[in-house]
Simulated scan of single mutants.
Amino acid sequence: MIEELIQNYGYLFEEELLQEINQVGTFKEVPEGFKLIEIGEYIKSMPLLVSGAIKILREDENGDELLLYFLERGDTCAMTLSCCLGQKKSEIRAISETPAKLIMIPIQKMEEWMTKYRSWRNFILESYHSRLMEMMQTIDSIAFMKMDERLLKHLRDKAMVTNDDVINSTHQDIANDLHTSRVVVSRLLKKLENQGKIQLFRNSIKVIDL
């Protein structure tokens, strides 16, 4: 695990912190679609993402989901941090968008490292800032962008986090992420294809206009 730590976090954390993470962290590999965090659960550890991508979702009172943001290599989740430090139940759902490798850090170490390591404190504060900016972009897209614009942005974001311009998602999966209906997504995907921005296949979508 120390090799993955140095490769992904060596430029951020000092040697002593890397060694502590290696001692107390738990290495975890998960397949695509694996549920890492569920709404209403108490969180006992915080993820450091070594590879892959994770999507963070909220749920309304009817059980419908809304995608907040993606986590990529080198990221952690601010919503998880908030629940860990406040010992509150999770308000988000985290699902692996691709096969992923993570290092799970016990929450007991969170506050200790905040005072002990300046690099950890800076990392946590920067993570809060990054996730806040991403959530603001999500709010802006809902408030100010047309649904076809939101859809194209979503496809571009997925292509970016997976490093693949071919997206293997059903129309229903995309509708769930955008909190809309499959019929609307299917119609708008066809519109985007006619505009030359994407190409539709039987079980995948190729993003041309990245």
Rank of each mutant, 00 (worst) to 15 (best):
D60L: 08
N194A: 12
M46H: 08
Q23P: 11
E20C: 13
A94G: 06
T180K: 07
K44R: 12
T170R: 03
R73K: 15
P106D: 05
G33E: 09
L81M: 14
Y117D: 06
H154F: 12
L71I: 05
I54E: 02
V184M: 14
K158Y: 07
G52T: 07
E111Q: 13
F27H: 15
S82R: 14
Q137I: 08
A175R: 00
D209R: 02
E61K: 14
V166M: 05
K197H: 11
L132F: 10
D173F: 03
I142G: 10
D140W: 14
L57G: 04
Q195R: 11
D64S: 09
A53G: 09
L81W: 02
Q23M: 14
G196D: 06
M104T: 06
K206A: 13
K28P: 04
T98Y: 02
E29D: 12
V24F: 10
F144G: 01
L36C: 07
E72P: 02
K109T: 11
I54M: 03
D148V: 07
I39D: 02
D177L: 05
E126L: 12
R58K: 14
E149F: 05
K35F: 13
M145Y: 15
Q137N: 11
F13V: 06
I124L: 08
V166K: 06
A100H: 00
I43L: 09
F27N: 14
Y11V: 10
